[in-house]
Design a protein around this nucleic acid. Structure first.
Lengths: 207, 207
DNA sequence: GCAAATTTTGACCGATTGGACAAACGTTAG
DNA sequence: CTAACGTTTGTCCAATCGGTCAAAATTTGC
């Protein structure tokens, strides 16, 4: 690997650009975003931005690489030690917190997948699949031990991704449907309570 | 309302264009799609296409209007008659079938929401919110009657949307993770089985 | 303080884009 | 057959796009 060897200004400005690009890319998609938009959001001129990143794709690629690490962190933490139901509950909670705290990252990822994941397909089939398969084995162990109900571990993970990321990716729809009164900051706590109940007990009446 | 008064050729060609545009828009987003791409997919020249739809936005708008009707149909069908758990089960099944049979429509919708729903926001706050509120009342009735567990009806509906649409919107990721053997046509039946179990019984071990 | 290296800018370029337009071509009703 | 109408095409345009480049301004190392 090549040593970056970056100036102080380079480090700062690159961060500034990446922050601006995250904002722009996550709301307009890659092709829907222009270098001018990113440059303006970063408070600099287009040629100046291109001094730090020579191509538009380089910005997107750098953003993507950083994203993937933090994005998979919660799943990596899912561990065999501790009570299985508690482990799953806290995985759901962590994912929901990420949707709340990093909605732009979630949307950037969603945009990429929606468009067929042209730039991260190898990572999906490689690193991601390996990690999920590994965790699926852990979950299967819990099922064999009678700690949680027997079901499909892969689709379980999908459903956790889907329900939690929904609150970032479909945020405008969630807020529109909940309305001004219920769509405020409390919506994430409501979601957390609901998801816990759903994943643990399901919908069938008690008794 | 103005009478369309369309020729036979106009009807046919407009359908052809809309079909091509659905394909292109759903995979590239609005800004990521060009009139040339749509024209080529429809097998006609760009000026010819512009004879039937004067602006690119007109195509998208027409597509969106049609989409919304069919998109909300399953929720409209959710009815007070019949067994509540059965009703919910078949709502989930219908939504999953739509994800399987109309993935392009799902992605078109997801793209629009991801970008802040600039063109359908009034519909989300109006028609959609009204419908969801109405069905939430029905579900609340089921809870009061002890037919299903007490929980938040709105977030329940969100979670059904999220889990089912995930199989259309994140299809490439689902297939990449499941791999060639489990990612084939059977993945929807696996998903249906899993979701039914999740929503009815949850994950806690039987006993 | 000065020279070298780094950063910023304005002007510019070719390619692509959404769209206009008039002329050519086809279809249809009388 | 023909005139009116509907359809298709080639050409063109202005705006926007990603990106280049050399010169100016600034920072940095000594």
């Amino acid at each position: 690997m090549d040593a970056p060897r970056r100036t102080r200004i380079q480090q700062e400005k690159r961060e500034l650009i990446l922050e601006a690009a995250l904002e722009v890319f996550s709301t307009n998609g890659f092709r829907g975003s222009t270098i001018d938009q990113i440059a303006e959001a970063a408070g600099m001129s287009k040629p100046n931005l291109l001094y730090y990143f020579r191509r538009k794709e380089d910005i997107h690629e750098t953003l993507m690489q950083r994203l993937l690490d933090t994005w998979l962190a919660p799943l990596r933490e899912l561990d065999d030690i501790g009570d299985p139901l508690t482990e799953l509950r806290s995985y759901i909670r962590r994912k929901l917190e990420m949707a709340r705290d990093f909605p732009r990252e979630s949307r950037l990822f969603a945009n990429e997948i929606l468009q067929g994941a042209p730039r991260i397909m190898p990572m999906l089939e490689g690193e991601l699949k390996t990690l999920v398969d590994e965790k699926a084995t852990v979950i299967k162990g819990w099922m064999r031990a009678g700690k949680i109900a027997r079901t499909d571990p892969w689709h379980l993970i999908f459903s956790i991704w889907a329900t939690t990321q929904h609150y970032a990716d479909f945020d405008v729809q969630v807020r529109a449907v909940l309305g001004p009164d219920r769509g405020g900051d409390g919506r994430f706590e409501d979601a957390a309570r609901f998801l816990e109940q759903l994943f643990i007990d399901g919908l069938k009446p008690e008794g």
